[in-house]
Structure formats: structure tokens, C-alpha cells
């Protein structure tokens, strides 16, 4: 019984604050991850040579760099270069870099799956390349990339716990402090695990609804 009391009176209130920080980290990182990911993907497929090289280097670097290492560089390394970031900002930046690199791969694949003729048709109507990309290519590519982007979002939920390593007291960090203080590792981490699980579950359901909402008859199924 006192385990329940511990969970209700001490653990959950402590985790609540951490959860809010976790949600803030995710909310701040995910939109920019998709946005920059889309930009990088477009740059890789349609950009000039230099833009293509830059985009490839960006993806190669951030895919290759362990996220924890990236966070360490951003938080512990940059001050010696005169740039001091708050732990929260450093975490969000690291997540954006990592997230956007992977997102760009999903979006790039989706762009390449769209029939070339639609680009040509857009140009033939007098659209600029930019207009074709914005109005024809990306709306379709993003739809097709949804499963991949959701996958990446789920990863983000989980790797947001790495922010704890640079002193951000998010969900995992908040739990770790309670667990150490009350020596309740099993209860604490079990509850935290359930919280992450529910975040992922909500995401999955939300993604499913989104996918249904933006579905285009005959398109999402990859008929073409």
C-alpha cells in the first residue's frame, strides 16, 4: 500500500514537472525537424551542386554523430568557442539536427517516388520550380513520408531523455532524482516506462488519424 502512496504522493508530482519539460523539448524540436528536414530533402533532390553537397554533408554528419556526443559538444564544447547555450536550448538544437537529418531521408525518398511528369506539368503551366515544389511535390511527398516521420517522432520522444545527460531535468531525470533519493528504482522506472509508452501510443493514434485525414483516394496506397 505504501508503494501506491509513494507513487501517488511523491513520484507522480515529481514526474509531472519532468513530463512537462519532455513535452516542451519535443514540441520545440519536432516541427523544426520536419521543416528543416524538408528543406534539406528538397536541397538534395533539386538544389544546385553546392546545395546538394551541403545537404548531403549535413545528413551524413548528423546521422553519423551519436546524439549524446552531439549534445556534449553543444553544451560543454561550444562555450570554449564563445557560445554558451542553456541546457534546454542545447538539447533542442541537438534534437533538431538529429531529427531533421533522418526526416530529410524519409522525405527525400518520398519526393523521388513522385512521378516526374507532375513536375513537368507544373512547369508547363508556367509555375516556377519553387512553386512546383511547394504546391505539387511537397504536399504529396509529405503525405507519403508520414509513416517515416512518425517513426522518427517516436524516436524523438524516447531520445529526449538524453537531455538529462546535459542537466535538463526532464521525465527521466526527474524520475532518477526521486529514485535515488527514496531508493525506489523499480517503481520509478516502471512508471516512467509506462508514461513513455502512453506518449508513444497517443502519437501512434494521432498519426493514424492524421494519415486518414490527409489521405487522398488512390494516392497514399502508392498506386503510382
Amino acid at each position: 500500500m505504501d508503494q501506491l502512496a509513494f507513487i501517488a504522493d511523491i513520484l507522480l508530482p515529481a514526474l509531472w514537472g519532468g513530463l512537462l519539460v519532455t513535452l516542451q523539448l519535443i514540441a520545440a524540436a519536432a516541427p523544426f525537424g520536419v521543416l528543416i528536414g524538408a528543406g534539406i530533402a528538397v536541397g538534395r533532390v533539386y538544389g544546385s551542386r553546392p546545395v546538394q553537397y551541403f545537404s548531403r554533408a549535413y545528413v551524413a554528419f548528423f546521422k553519423g554523430c551519436p546524439l549524446l556526443l552531439l549534445l556534449f559538444i553543444l553544451y560543454f564544447g561550444l562555450p570554449s568557442a564563445g557560445i554558451s547555450l542553456s541546457p534546454f536550448t542545447a538539447s533542442v538544437l541537438g534534437f533538431i539536427f538529429c531529427n531533421s537529418a533522418y526526416d530529410s531521408e524519409y522525405i527525400r525518398g518520398a519526393i523521388k517516388s513522385i512521378r516526374e511528369g507532375q513536375f513537368t506539368a507544373g512547369l508547363a503551366l508556367g509555375m516556377t520550380r519553387g512553386q512546383v515544389i511547394r504546391n505539387v511535390i511537397l504536399p504529396q511527398a509529405l503525405r507519403r513520408a508520414i509513416p517515416g516521420l512518425v517513426n522518427e517522432f517516436v524516436y524523438l520522444i524516447k531520445y529526449s531523455s538524453l537531455a538529462y545527460m546535459i542537466t535538463v531535468i526532464e521525465l527521466t531525470g526527474a524520475g532518477k532524482m526521486v529514485a535515488t533519493r527514496y531508493f525506489t528504482y523499480n517503481e520509478t522506472f516502471l512508471v516512467i516506462g509506462l508514461v513513455y509508452l502512453s506518449l508513444v501510443t497517443v502519437t501512434t493514434i494521432g498519426a493514424h488519424l492524421l494519415e486518414r485525414r490527409v489521405a487522398v483516394p488512390g494516392m497514399a496506397s502508392g498506386r503510382h
Binding site: G117, Q118, A121, A124, L125, G126, M127, V136, P139, R143
Partner: peptide, 28 residues
């Protein structure tokens, strides 16, 4: 500007898959 004055119809139609017939005609 010139392309806008030169209509083109393709062998494979090349309609925009994510838009209704109406939106396909409207978008340009």
C-alpha cells in the same frame, strides 16, 4: 510567362495526384 501561354497536354496526363479535378484546373 511564355509557358503560361503555351498549353501542354501529355501522353500520361500528368495530373496532380493530390488534387481534385477542380483543384488541378484551378491551381495554376
Amino acid at each position: 510567362q511564355y509557358r503560361a501561354k503555351i498549353g501542354m497536354v501529355f501522353q500520361n496526363f500528368n495530373l496532380f495526384d493530390h488534387l481534385t479535378a477542380l483543384r488541378n484546373v484551378e491551381i495554376a
